[in-house]
Amino acid sequence: MNDFYEKFRNLTFFDNHPEAIANHLDNFYTSEEITVFHEMVSPDFHLDVYFISSAKHSFNILLTCGMSLLEMTVPEGVENAEQYKFAELMILIPKEIEFGEVSPSENENDWILGMLKETARFPHHYDTWLTIGHTLQATADMEPYDQATDYVGLVVLPSVTFDEEFTEIKIDNKVINILSIFPLYKNELEYKIANGYNALLDRLIEKDEKEVFNKQRGNLLDQ
């Protein structure tokens, strides 16, 4: 455990990125439309979640702020690797999904926030990266994120709701990418692992699935 803490003490933090994210959001939303779930204790790096509720959308937004404090470990050989080093994660949620005033709480939807934050921490804990097409599972045994859901993992997707004006934050000749996450059932995750991202994407298109999170959507593999 001491080695874990020591690792993060010795990394380079880009402390100006959270301010850049806040300034970016100010271009699209008023302060009244934005709430922040502040992280009270951070064992590695500080990771907050923005909750954006605007009348101009039929959905709300959860957006991490802190994943881009550290650069991800993009493998050698990836073309334009610099463009993938920094990211934050977003999920669009229905208006009726509510959270407690603080997080964590006893709210039944807290697992959604937990899923976001666990995913945002993953690349830094395991010296890897996340980008479009990548999948993650909640546990090694593909157990659900929480007893309140059957989702066991997720796939990283490009947003089809927002364009690059919103999903790319430019700062100091770098870019912070805002990536969307889409929760998956066990057989869907297994299907993607076996058949690849494009096959899963075809299923999403065939089913006309929306980017907005659905607690109990139909299975992509059902006929």
Rank of each mutant, 00 (worst) to 15 (best):
A20P: 04
A120I: 02
V78N: 07
D15C: 12
T35A: 12
N214P: 09
L179A: 01
I205S: 14
E168G: 07
T30A: 05
M72F: 00
V212M: 01
S42M: 05
H17I: 00
Y126T: 13
A199V: 07
P104L: 12
V152K: 12
P104E: 15
T128I: 12
G153E: 03
F122S: 09
N177S: 06
P158Y: 15
Y191H: 10
N173P: 05
N198F: 11
D3W: 09
S105R: 12
D15Y: 09
T149N: 07
I205P: 07
L221T: 01
T30P: 02
T135W: 03
F166S: 09
D15P: 03
K174Y: 14
E71V: 05
V175L: 04
L89A: 03
L25N: 11
V49F: 00
Q216W: 12
I91Q: 00
I93K: 00
P94H: 12
F162W: 15
N2K: 13
T119D: 00
E82I: 03
M72N: 05
E143D: 11
T119H: 01
Y84L: 10
Q223V: 15
E101L: 13
P123V: 03
E32R: 07
S68E: 01
G196Y: 11
D48A: 05
N198W: 14
I132K: 01
L116E: 15
V156G: 03
F14I: 01
Y29R: 05
D150A: 09
V155D: 05
R121K: 09
Y29K: 05
Y145F: 14
L220P: 02
E106W: 14
E101P: 05
H46S: 07
W129F: 15
V102Q: 13
D110A: 08
A20D: 07
Y5H: 15
I112C: 02
D172K: 06
D15N: 13
K117L: 09
W129V: 10
K85M: 03
G100F: 10
M115N: 06
A194R: 15
N173E: 15
F45C: 04
T161N: 13
E96Q: 10
G114N: 10
A148P: 04
I178T: 04
A55S: 10
Q223K: 14
